[in-house]
Amino acid sequence: MLRTVPVDGSPRSVATLADALAAALDGTGPAVRPVAADAPPTPGPTGELPEGAAVVVSTSGSTGEPKHVVLTAAALTASARATEERLGGPGRWVLPLPAEHVAGVQVIVRALLAGAPPQVQDVRAGFRPAGFARTTARLPHGARRYTSLVPTQLLRVLREGSGPLDALRGYAAVLVGGAALDPALREQAREAGVRVVTTYGMSETAGGCVYDGVPLDGVTVDIDDGRILLGGPTVAAGYLGDPAATAESFAGGRFRTGDLGRLDDGRLTVLGRADDVVVTGGENVAPAAVERVLSAQPGVRDVCVVGVPDGEWGAVVAAAVVADGDFERDGVAAAVRAELGRAAVPRRWLAVGEIPLRGIGKPDRAEVRRLLSATTTTEQTSPIR
């Protein structure tokens, strides 16, 4: 049996989900499928749940094709306990994330296993730094504090400063995941006194399972033909109602991700999505590598790099940039050329007010690609000097 629980970002709806999760974890209630209350109605997953199933997280990913990830109580518990061990012990949690995503589910699970439900920020009108500070203030005085953010939320708190930043400084650890964390943003947070821990993982691994490049206890990381393989007790049981996709992605207790990576003395560096690689004039360019160089340049506040079709080159590297007034395209292009080579230099540029996002805070690369493909050559270059 599978119980669908709608959540709308309100503390009340998250409390209902938390009660359902608690019952699913201890086996007294059915498995739970959290969904956004305002999501368009779609057919629910079908198929037989495996023994021990506690949560089904439905995620469309970048392709828009729904997948229904089955997480057992054992996998969720293993992830929560390993996180607790890595961070230095149990604590009280604040949830500022949408609870229908695996990161939100795991905040609830960690909090429940630590002995108390999380304090929930009301995000029905979106994330507000001031609201985060008010939610933090509801935690017991002197309690060890944890929270989980996406990079966009971290950036907003840092920009707000004052009370919200003071609140964030009081956390023993601030997990940041859901999208790549710009090294410059991480350094800004560190200098502001925020204890950031970067996380890497996905629904299929019960959320983050690699912290600051180091796998949690029991988690294995391997590289196969450039692809990251994750194993251990946090790996999902598969996709509900999709045995073909399960067989393709899960084998031997490991999940084959769609990400490229490398291991250096046991520390993982994620190089980006394998299907995001741009083949331009016969050269392979990883957008994540270009984004790292661009993000480090003066005047660049945010960036998303994609490939767009081109009649001459097959595809060209293109960049949507959120920039300050002192951004100079020639200078940043030279920096990319010096570090990554000529093929990696974006041939198309577009200034945007913000990078389109999807889901929990990942760049919407399909929308960025559409924007860059739809512009003319003049429009691509004129907004950025």
Rank of each mutant, 00 (worst) to 15 (best):
D259Q: 00
T77H: 08
A333D: 14
Q106W: 04
L139S: 03
G201F: 12
V332Y: 11
Y146H: 10
A288Y: 07
A192M: 05
G163F: 03
S10A: 06
A320L: 11
V306R: 03
P151L: 06
R262I: 04
R33C: 15
A54Y: 08
I384P: 10
P6S: 09
A289G: 01
A333R: 13
G64F: 06
H101I: 05
V306I: 14
A173R: 15
T77R: 15
T135G: 05
G88T: 06
G314M: 09
G353C: 01
R81H: 08
D212Q: 10
A374D: 15
A244D: 15
F132G: 12
A244K: 07
P183E: 05
T152F: 08
T77A: 01
V194P: 04
Y239T: 06
M202Q: 15
P34V: 04
A192I: 06
V105T: 05
D19V: 03
D242V: 00
L340E: 13
V285P: 02
H68F: 10
S62N: 09
D222A: 14
V352S: 02
T280D: 07
A37G: 14
P41G: 05
G89H: 03
V150F: 10
G232V: 09
H141G: 12
P117V: 00
I355P: 09
P215H: 13
V150T: 03
R227C: 06
R3Q: 13
R190P: 02
M202W: 01
S373N: 06
Y239S: 05
S62Y: 08
K362E: 08
V321T: 01
L25R: 00
R12E: 15
S162C: 06
G253H: 09
G142D: 14
C209T: 13
L230R: 01
E339D: 14
A179W: 07
L87Q: 06
V109I: 08
P41E: 11
I223A: 07
V352T: 05
D302H: 02
E85F: 06
E191N: 11
V214A: 14
P383H: 11
A318Q: 04
G104Y: 01
A180M: 02
E328V: 15
D225K: 12
V345L: 06
P98T: 03
V150I: 03
T375R: 14
R145D: 15
R301K: 02
A192W: 10
G258K: 01
G218D: 14
V306M: 10
D222R: 07
P164N: 00
L216M: 05
V214L: 12
T257C: 00
G331K: 08
R156F: 00
R134E: 15
A75T: 04
R365N: 12
